[in-house]
Design a protein around this nucleic acid. Structure first.
Length: 357
DNA sequence: CTAGGGTTAG
């Protein structure tokens, strides 16, 4: 466009700024901001709102606030963008402050606040806000319910989760894939695997994506339904959904749970073969598999040949294996390393003190 | 033309 000598106008900039936000590329966002000022578009409310969102998405909440403060005519989008910016940055004190200062609040304002509390791990507060919303706020929609279901999942609040499911159906909220994934995850995390499978089976296979497969495969794995988990992975491959790093993490977790050492090696190798880079979580899972199976030397050697530094969960898994399989010499070595790495690791420290007892 | 949601975490 620029090569052709066509200049962006006030309708172009929001898209460009949004792209920078999506990419979390503050550099390009800042250069757009400069261009916006140079071309005299800095007081366009759509452009200002997109700039708030861009800065917040790049983690620059100060930059976002500067744009927000510079505005003379703020609208609900401006306030919602600022609120969501604080919520996304995890500053729920300021997010709540913004929320309280607003004259008008729509479903997005409430949803951003609820989601912020969920992301901050304050699930009870998130539920409290949702209950208040039902009394004094606008009707919640399918986006609100995703965050609410996530709160129920983390609280293990199965009955509440069921109520939310009924609320969604009774109010005719659109059953999006995101919502169905949240339902699968909620039921799985609350231990209602049958319900998770029921929701999952209600999605036509051609509509599925990697997220919902990961949710059900991971849910089955964490509840020890290892065979079913691996069976669903095969099904996922048959449907032609490309697995990702998280799929493999779920599979390795399933192997750890079921004591499937051979299968774990196979998945670890597949992960690399598919061009993915194992993360420290993958390595930790692999160590866990080997340690649980009593293959302590193999686990130790595996850690030594990794291209990354060992992490506390990794050494913790190995230490547990050493203790359970009565290899106290190795336990002492691993325990010392673990304390070096993470001096505040109480639980593991207690594990180690058992070695000396 | 601008703002909100899902999968890992022993």
């Amino acid at each position: 466009m620029q090569q052709l000598g066509v200049a962006p106008n006030y309708l172009t900039y929001p898209f460009l700024v949004k792209a920078s936000a999506r990419l979390s590329n503050q550099e390009s966002g800042v250069s757009l901001h400069a261009q916006i000022i140079k071309t005299g578009h800095e007081s366009d409310i759509f452009i200002q709102n997109s700039l708030i969102h861009m800065y917040a998405s790049c983690g620059n909440i100060i930059g976002a606030h500067k744009v927000f403060d510079s505005m003379q005519g703020k609208n609900l989008v401006s306030w919602n963008s600022m609120l969501d910016g604080y919520a996304k940055c995890g500053d729920m004190v300021l997010a709540h402050k913004v929320f309280e200062s607003m004259q008008d609040r729509d479903v997005r304002s409430w949803s951003s606040l609820i989601d912020g509390y969920v992301k901050a791990g304050e699930y009870r507060e998130a539920m409290a806000i949702f209950e208040k919303m039902q009394v004094v706020g606008p009707k919640s929609n399918e986006v609100t319910m995703v965050s609410v279901l996530s709160a129920c999942a983390h609280l293990g609040a199965l009955e509440k989760g069921r109520m939310m499911h009924k609320y969604i159906v009774n109010n005719g909220l659109p059953m999006t894939m995101v919502l169905q994934t949240s339902l699968v995850d909620m039921y799985a995390k609350c231990g209602a695997i049958e319900d998770a499978l029921f929701v999952f089976r209600g999605v036509s296979k051609s509509q599925t994506d990697v997220f919902i497969w990961n949710a059900i495969i991971g849910g089955l794995a964490t509840h020890g339904l290892v065979e079913e988990s691996l069976k669903l992975f095969k099904e996922m491959q048959m449907v032609g959904i490309r697995s990702d790093e998280i799929t493999y993490l779920c599979l390795l977790a399933a192997c750890a749970h079921g004591g499937l050492v051979k299968e774990a090696w196979y998945f670890f190798e597949s992960l690399v073969k598919c061009g993915m880079t194992p993360t420290s979580e993958h390595y930790a899972c692999m160590v866990d598999v080997l340690a649980r199976a009593g293959q302590l030397t193999a686990a130790y050697q595996f850690i030594c040949q990794m291209p990354i530094e060992p992490t506390a969960p990794m050494l913790g898994a190995l230490l547990s294996g050493c203790i359970n399989h009565r290899n106290l010499d190795l336990a002492e070595i691993v325990g010392k390393k673990l304390i070096e790495l993470d001096p505040n690791n109480d639980g593991r420290y207690i594990g180690l003190s058992n070695v000396y007892a």
